[in-house]
């Protein structure tokens, strides 16, 4: 059912695609250029591509020593692994916890249901910047296990650092906790609209056959809402992977994520454009892959999340 359209529309389409992808393509090209080429002004595509920038960025992961580096100062590889751990674990947790909650909200009538559903909606609008101060304070001072406290008795001494206490700040767990909490409202909201569409008769049939509520949920409902789960997973991963502000407040030298490293490098006096572009490209690759392979799910999720909003 293709209509024959005016060539002007195709021109417009091409222009729009160029505008949307142009900056990303520019970053991609520049990440393969030496700084001399970027600054020297040989615009266009005629240059000698090099992977030197990527070698500099990933020097702590390489099994060989690149010739152009005397010292590996950018610990990008470690940050990349931190980002992966944090994003994957928080996505998995958010999904499991979120779809259970969404199921309860859609299918059961229980006391406090309206309160929960209203609270979930309201906290969706809280910006990360608002959480910065309290989360920084709590994670550093209140959410701690003291060695002389109750829980401390069950843990080995090596678990505690200086001062006889171990806090949530500076651990992967601390960052994961806040990401899960931040993403839950959105995931619950999106999944509700998918769970509503699951026919009740299917669940009842399973119940008649003797399945308990958890079996019904995991074996009947979950497989049916796979597209919704995919959309929710992509959105959660995107936030956890891209977030900067809270991670920068909560991480220490060993738990730094990629966005923090990029911002730190940006604010230095002498910007090495090539390396910066390479790190940016590495950070952008996972979301780009998701988009190219699952754009349909992303668009469905976006419409489901907004139309009901």
């Amino acid at each position: 059912m293709q209509e024959r359209a005016n060539p002007a529309f195709y021109a417009l389409l091409v222009a729009l695609i160029f505008m949307a992808v142009g900056p990303i393509f520019l970053m991609f090209i520049n990440s393969f250029k030496l700084d001399v080429d970027i600054i020297g002004g040989t615009t266009g595509l005629i240059f000698l591509p090099t992977i030197q920038n990527y070698e500099t960025a990933l020097c702590d992961l390489l099994w060989y020593e690149p010739d152009h580096l005397d010292f590996c100062s950018l610990k990008f590889g470690g940050a990349f692994i931190n980002s992966l751990i944090i994003a994957l674990i928080s996505t998995a947790l958010t999904l499991v916890i979120g779809c259970m909650a969404a199921y309860a909200l859609v299918r059961f009538n229980f006391m406090g249901r309206d309160t929960v559903s209203f609270t979930t909606l309201m906290v969706r609008m809280v910006p990360p910047a608002v959480l910065l101060v309290p989360v920084f304070g709590l994670w550093n001072n209140n959410f701690c296990i003291r060695e002389d406290g109750f829980a401390g008795m069950f843990l080995p001494e090596s678990f505690f650092g200086r001062g006889g206490e171990s806090c949530l700040a500076g651990t992967h767990g601390g960052i994961i906790l806040i990401y899960v909490a931040m993403n839950l409202p959105f995931v619950i909201w999106i999944l509700q609209s998918f769970i509503v569409q699951v026919p009740r008769s299917l669940e009842e049939a399973a119940r008649v056959d003797g399945a308990g509520p958890f079996q019904v949920f995991f074996l009947v409902v979950l497989p049916l809402i796979k597209p919704g789960l995919a959309a929710a997973a992509i959105f959660t991963f995107r936030i956890a992977w891209n977030e900067y502000l809270l991670a920068s407040a909560l991480s220490d030298r060993d738990t730094r994520t990629v966005p923090i490293l990029i911002v730190n490098n940006m604010s230095e006096f002498n910007v090495e454009w090539g390396v910066i572009m390479a790190t940016g490209m590495l950070l952008a690759i996972p979301p780009i892959i998701f988009t190219l392979f699952a754009s349909r799910q992303i668009i469905t999720g976006m419409t489901a999340g907004a139309v009901k909003g």
């Binding site: 729009l16 695609i17 949307a20 992808v21 900056p23 990303i24 970053m27 995107r238 992977w241 891209n242 900067y244 966005p259 990029i262 911002v263 940016g280 950070l283 952008a284 979301p287 780009i288 998701f290 988009t291 190219l292 754009s295 992303i298 668009i299 976006m302």
Partner: peptide
Amino acid sequence: RTLFILPMMIAPVV
């Protein structure tokens, strides 16, 4: 549509 959602998927830092 696919290429159009790229800008919102990549990190704000990038």
